[in-house]
């Protein structure tokens, strides 16, 4: 069974690689081969690749190398994301478990969650200025919302019969929460971690476009101003790849922790 799965996986991998290659090939044909676009409108993949290599060492035109931008972004994103998880997951769990906490927090939460994360940027900048804090706070809010919603519904979806099993064995309220409801909600909690990662990463780039001096979003913004579309695309590609890697890490951790084949 293991071998069959691995075989199926590698087949999928080939198909995925092929589709990415086809996309790049089409891009190359319309730019370098047919020359349908000028290079400052749509640079060719070759040009983007060259810029990508150069950007590792070159600080022009935005004042930092690619790696420095990437680290600046990661620092902000992971900082906000981790605090969002540390607060959002327990908050969602306790809201779902305890009616009083639910009644207390829910109205505020329902108002906050409809606001797009980026909308907080101006408020945060006014409050704490342009810098690490304002961006981290914006990310914290958007990541936390996803964590709360998913942990909340995870706990709410606990099967009644599972709680009854605990109850008839004489489990206390705390035991019902820790031994039945939370294990039962873990797949949803990990979905929340994945969704939150996505929203943290997208919000980050948007926040950096407005309030920043370093970071991938800032790099894109600067390059756009001087029509360096090749740098813009380099930024986009790095964002995509980093996001995919982070998401894979979360899923790998999830598969280790969530038992019984319950995570897709």
């Amino acid at each position: 069974m293991k071998n069959k799965q691995t075989a199926k996986m590698s087949k999928f991998l080939i198909i995925s690689v092929l589709s990415v290659c086809a996309g790049i090939l089409a891009w190359w044909i319309v730019t370098d081969v047919l020359e349908l676009f000028r290079s400052n409108v749509l640079p060719s993949p070759v040009k983007v690749m060259q810029t990508f290599m150069k950007k590792w060492v070159e600080t022009k035109p935005d004042g930092a190398t690619l790696l420095q931008h990437l680290f600046a972004s990661l620092k902000v994103a992971l900082g906000g994301y981790l605090i969002g998880a540390a607060i959002g997951i327990p908050l969602g769990i306790f809201m779902a478990w305890n009616d009083k906490i639910d009644m207390l927090v829910r109205p505020v939460f329902d108002l906050v969650r409809t606001i797009p994360g980026v909308a907080w940027t101006s408020v945060m900048v006014t409050l704490v200025g342009i810098g690490y804090m304002s961006k981290a706070l914006v990310i914290f809010i958007s990541a936390m919302v996803a964590m709360v919603i998913n942990s909340y519904s995870g706990i709410k979806q606990t099967k009644t019969v599972h709680l009854w099993v605990g109850q008839t064995f004489g489990a206390s309220n705390w035991e019902l929460l820790t031994k039945v409801a939370i294990p039962s909600a873990l797949p949803m909690i990990f979905t929340g971690l994945d969704v939150a990662l996505g929203s943290a990463w997208t919000t980050l780039v948007a926040a950096e476009l407005l309030a920043s001096t370093r970071g991938l979003g800032f790099m894109i913004q600067q390059a756009r101003g001087i029509f360096r579309l090749d740098i813009v695309i380099v930024g986009m590609v790095v964002i995509a790849i980093t996001g995919a890697i982070l998401s894979t890490i979360i899923r790998k951790i999830g598969n280790k922790i969530v038992k019984g084949g319950r995570l897709g």
Partner: peptide, 21 residues
């Protein structure tokens, strides 16, 4: 009182916990 008396209940629905072996 299930907390002090030793009672067990087998339910109509399947009640095994999917996260435990």
């Amino acid at each position: 009182n299930p907390k002090t008396q030793n009672i067990s209940y087998i339910f109509q629905e399947y009640s095994s916990f999917p996260w435990l072996t």
